[in-house]
Every structure is written in structure tokens, then in C-alpha cells.
Design a binder for these strands. Structure first.
Ligand SMILES: [Mn+2]
Ligand SMILES: [Mn+2]
Ligand SMILES: [Zn+2]
Ligand SMILES: [Zn+2]
Lengths: 151, 151
DNA sequence: ACATAATTGAAAATGGTTGTCAATATAAAC
DNA sequence: GTTTATATTGACAACCATTTTCAATTATGT
């Protein structure tokens, strides 16, 4: 069950509710609407983009609330904020412990994800060589996707 | 001679002058002051930081001119703009074809540089697997430097 | 020196993000 | 259910790095 889309959504929602409770925060209609809409979308959405989707479902929700709620998602670990050089933050769902990096098409904005354990290991080597304690990293490859390259 | 610091400075200045000429742009006092001060500093300076240094030498130079000139440096290839997540662009000198990535201390802001050909190769593999034509990439490792880790 | 076009610096505009605050909603206590 | 204390909301303003505007100035070719 925890492998299905439905099960995942339930799990993430519970994580969020637990986080709210643990911090003495309140479970509001707006937060639930925003979470539901967020779960329906594909990843890498900007605040603005999610705000427009949320308005489609409930026009009374304000931009600031969407933004604050996305920050909360990131705080409790169900979402991560990313920056791909277009000057605005984008949020994506986080599933458990998986980590991935990104290929970004500078032509059409397409974002692909990849995992490469060898690169991760080499990064750790680099960190060790410099006696750095790594907290996180970012690796992004920018270029043209096949479709854009053939134009 | 082209290996000495002096020789390098002369070379970069010439590259810039050639770029100006090729674009029908003008060689001004401000641009030369900004280039000279930029060459004297260590890398990864923000516009604001360089602006303050330039004012020390000539208080009449404006912030916008410093910013526009840094953009010109980047355009002609003698500088590169970087972003390390603190919300402001930073510029560094570019020497020839070398490429490097960065370790960034989240404690004190220290920035170390490293080169890792194996990682570069693996990145190319990833790009090939997805039929992407890579134009550039960014790899940054964030964490604590030895000094900050031992506090 | 003259003409043309680029440059400059001060100030305002921009745009994503974050802060303010009075009105409202939540959840626990009564 | 009612009261009470506290968190939340949404409209708006503030923030801040960056970019644009524009009249005055400067560089360059003739
Ligand atoms: Mn992703
Ligand atoms: Mn560097
Ligand atoms: Zn594309
Ligand atoms: Zn440090």
C-alpha cells in the first residue's frame, strides 16, 4: 500500500500533520488544499505556478499562504526547494531517502532527473580530501534536450 | 611571460580591449579602473564588494557601471558569474580553458575550488544517456570547513 | 573642431521573496 | 457549547539584488 500513489499521498500528508502537531501549528483548510493540489502536480513547480493551480480550486487562498505552506513542506521534509537559474525557487516532492540531480534544457525548460552513485562517491572523496563535512550538494547539467537540439 | 601574474593581467586586459573594439564599444576610464581593481582582488566577489573596492580608488564610479562592466567581463570570457545560494551573483576570473567546481562552507563562507576529471567524465556519460547536449554545468558541495566543523 | 553614437551615474523600476498587521480560525480548557 | 489563548490568513507594504531609464558627458572617426 505504501508503494501506491494513494498510499504515498497518505503517508506524506501524515508526515505533514505530525510536523504541524509537533510544532504546535494548526491544521487549516488552506494548508490541506495546498497540500492536495501540490500532490497532484508534477514536480519543480514555482510558488506562482502552484498558486494559480490552488486558485483554480479555491480562489480565496492568498499567494503568501501558498508560499508559507511550501516553506513548511520543505521544513518537514516532504518537499525540497530547488533553483535552476531562472531566478525563482521551485519545489518538488521528496520520497524517503532518495537523492537525484538534474538535467535542465535551456531551450524549453524541460527538467530530467538522474541518479549516479559513482558521482556521489567521487564527491565524497573530494570532500574528504579537503576535510569538509558535506551537508548537501547540487549538481545540474544545463544544455539542450534532444528535441531542442534538432531545431 | 604569459605564465606570470603580470603577463596574465596584460593578456586579460587585451582580451577585454579586443572585445570592446569588436563590438563597437568604447574604452573608458571607468572600465579600465574596474578591470584593474578586479584583477587585484581574490575571486568570488559580489558586485557590491567590488563596487566598494573601486570607490576606494575613484569615488566617482557608480554602482551601475561596476555591475554593467562585470557583465561585460563575463560576456567576453575573462570572468564568470557564479551563484552560491546567498542570493547574489559573484564573479571570478577565468584563466583559459580550465574548469573547476566549488566547496562552500556554510559556516564562514569559505569557498574552495577543485577539479575532478572523473566526475566530469561521468557527467558526460549521464548527458549521453539522455541525449542531452551539455552547454555547462554547476557542481557545488555545501558543508562545514575543518575550522567551522571543530566548533 | 564637429558629428555621431556609446557611456555614465543617479534615480526609479523590477520581480521574487519576505514581513506586517488587523481580522479570523483553530484547538484546548472550561 | 462557550470561552480563551494562540496561530493563521490575506491584502498590502517592504525588502534587496538586479536592471532600466534618461539627461548629461565622453570617446572616436571624420
Ligand atoms: Mn527533481
Ligand atoms: Mn571559483
Ligand atoms: Zn528542450
Ligand atoms: Zn567555515
Amino acid at each position: 500500500m505504501s508503494e501506491t500513489i494513494q498510499g504515498l499521498a497518505v503517508e506524506l500528508k501524515q508526515t505533514f500533520l505530525d510536523y504541524l502537531a509537533s510544532k504546535g501549528l494548526k491544521n487549516t483548510t488552506q494548508r490541506m488544499i495546498i497540500l492536495e493540489v501540490f500532490l497532484e502536480q508534477k514536480s519543480h513547480l514555482s510558488t506562482e505556478e502552484l498558486y494559480l493551480k490552488v486558485r483554480g480550486k479555491n480562489p480565496k487562498v492568498g499567494y503568501a499562504t501558498v508560499h508559507r505552506t511550501l516553506k513548511l513542506f520543505a521544513e518537514c521534509g516532504i518537499a525540497a526547494e530547488r533553483h535552476f537559474g531562472d531566478g525563482q525557487g521551485r519545489f518538488e516532492l521528496v520520497h524517503g531517502e532518495d537523492h537525484h540531480d538534474h538535467l535542465v534544457c535551456t531551450g524549453c525548460g524541460l527538467i530530467l532527473e538522474f541518479e549516479n552513485p559513482q558521482i556521489e562517491e567521487l564527491q565524497e572523496d573530494v570532500a574528504r580530501q579537503h576535510r569538509f563535512t558535506i551537508e548537501n550538494h547540487r549538481l545540474e547539467l544545463y544544455g539542450l534536450c534532444p528535441a531542442c537540439a534538432s531545431k
